[in-house]
């Protein structure tokens, strides 16, 4: 554990709390992609299988994994049942099969070991890298977002960004590199660059998140 990794995880935790706060206070999931949230449930369930099948890492690790599985399922419940009328499927139109299919194929080709757990782990890494795309696509389509939603996305992007110095640190401190996680992580962070540009130049200057027409 190093400071980048810890800050990254805390940022991930914060992003979920911001999202829950947004849904609860506005009593609406407007502007949130159900598809992205559903993909995160798949990501967490396939990656954290090791909670039941793998080796014990730490209490921190287990508690965080349980939180991510629990909160992502709860968000789906809020979106699909509790605040269902506030979700508009007509603007959430990204085809998830274009993300799930290639992730599965990549996982079958590039994994660390030909076992079910390892293939699902690799799949979850590839899928997480692109799971934000339906959300970003929706943002692109509507051209605007509530400020709280942009804070959610910023925290989520920061989590991924912070994992990069964490890997650099780990390379120098214990000589380990996890190429699958690093390459997928770089792609994932790259997807946020456009968003961050608008976030820094507009939202943090007190303006509304609006994309140029």
């Amino acid at each position: 554990m190093n400071v980048f990794r810890l800050l990254g995880d805390l940022s991930h935790l914060a992003s979920i709390l911001i999202l829950l706060h947004k849904i609860q206070t506005t009593r609406s999931c407007r502007g949130i992609s159900f598809k992205t949230q559903a993909l995160y449930v798949v990501v967490f369930l396939t990656r954290y299988l090791d909670l039941f099948l793998g080796d014990w890492v730490s209490l921190y690790n287990t508690a965080m994994k349980l939180f991510f599985i629990g909160s992502s399922c709860y968000i789906l419940y809020l979106m699909k049942l509790r605040f269902r009328p506030t979700h508009d499927p007509a603007i959430d139109t990204f085809r998830v099969e274009y993300l799930v299919g290639p992730s599965l194929i990549l996982a079958l080709i590039f994994n660390y070991k030909y076992t079910l757990v390892e293939i699902l782990w690799a799949f979850s890494i590839y899928l997480e890298a692109v799971a934000i795309m339906p959300q970003l696509f929706m943002l692109q389509r509507t051209g605007e977002a509530e400020t709280i939603t942009t804070h959610y996305l910023a925290a989520l992007g920061a989590y991924r960004g912070l994992y990069i110095p964490n890997w650099i640190y780990r390379y120098f401190s214990d000589g380990t590199v996890d190429p699958i996680a690093v390459i997928a992580g770089l792609v994932q962070t790259g997807l946020y660059l456009d968003f961050f540009y608008v976030y820094f130049t507009r939202v943090l200057q007190g303006q509304k998140f609006e994309l140029p027409a």
Partner: peptide, 10 residues
């Protein structure tokens, strides 16, 4: 690393 690295990251 290589064969089945320990996945200690989240």
């Amino acid at each position: 690393e290589g064969a089945a690295a320990t996945h200690d990251e989240l």
